[in-house]
Nucleic acid binder design. Structure first.
Ligand code: ZN
Ligand code: ZN
Ligand code: ZN
Ligand code: ZN
Lengths: 132, 132
DNA sequence: AACACTATGTAATAATATAACATTTACATG
DNA sequence: CATGTAAATGTTATATTATTACATAGTGTT
């Protein structure tokens, strides 16, 4: 079980938009889409995004500067994220694989560093694009 | 063995700068540092960076928008990168771990996607920062 | 020389993100 | 209910990161 978060007005508007989107959304595209709802400035968007990322409702796809709703029933593990990205159609989906997340969460190397978080992005061609 | 690449003038200037830097460098900081050598415009920097990334001499740290020289004797595997990032001092180093890279290169899930590349970023506290 | 290819130079602009400051709302606690 | 405090909001300006468009120059091959 995870702590239930109540989203504020702006956070809810922006989360709903991202959650409905079939693809990752960029900040300024979000801004454009919520202007009719009274959210007028980049900072309002970025603040909501920061919060949503923090509580694991969305994730940032770093290589794309874009945001996607968590596909993992709101990641307990917003600190352990993995995505698969099609380099042709730019489809992105969150990988939910227990073995992988265990392997990476337990990873330790010789550096003496204690890892508390990771983000993994896989790139390739999705089924559809492969068969073209 | 890998194909030996000859770097062009701008590419060499920019690679040398990044290679000497103890920390990842950002594009505009690179620009600032090479202006005395005649590289005056962002595009000149970005073009060199693109090429250097392509041939595996440097890597981009996506979560930081910064560039680091390959610490792996010029990655044969510029398609399989892993980094450890200290969230306190921002020290970044490239992880070279055969088991990890094998595990990830062979990773396959149920999506039917063929992965040809990955990038992994671990976050935490380095030895030094941990003991503070 | 003619060609293809890679790299360079320059100006303008697009896209992404944050700083600074003022105000308002939610809500715990005396 | 009053008061304090943390979280969220609103607004303007600005910083940072990256690309478009177009012109020119070098490099190597035939
Ligand atoms: Zn998730
Ligand atoms: Zn695809
Ligand atoms: Zn490398
Ligand atoms: Zn550190």
């Amino acid at each position: 079980m995870q702590k239930q978060q109540t989203l504020s007005r702006n956070q809810k508007i922006i989360f709903d938009l991202i959650d409905k989107s079939p693809e990752p959304m960029k900040a300024y595209s979000i801004l454009f889409n919520v202007q009719k709802k009274g959210i007028k400035a980049p900072l309002q968007v970025y603040r909501a995004l920061d919060k949503l990322v923090e509580i694991g409702k969305i994730h940032k796809i770093e290589s794309r500067n874009a945001f996607i709703a968590c596909q993992n029933s709101s990641c307990q593990i917003s600190k352990a994220t993995a995505f698969s990205i099609c380099e042709s159609c730019e489809n992105v989906s969150e990988i939910s694989n227990t073995k992988l997340s265990k392997y990476l969460s337990n990873f330790a190397d010789s550096s003496g560093m204690k890892y508390s978080k990771y983000n993994l992005e896989f790139f390739g061609l999705c089924k559809k694009c492969k068969s073209k």
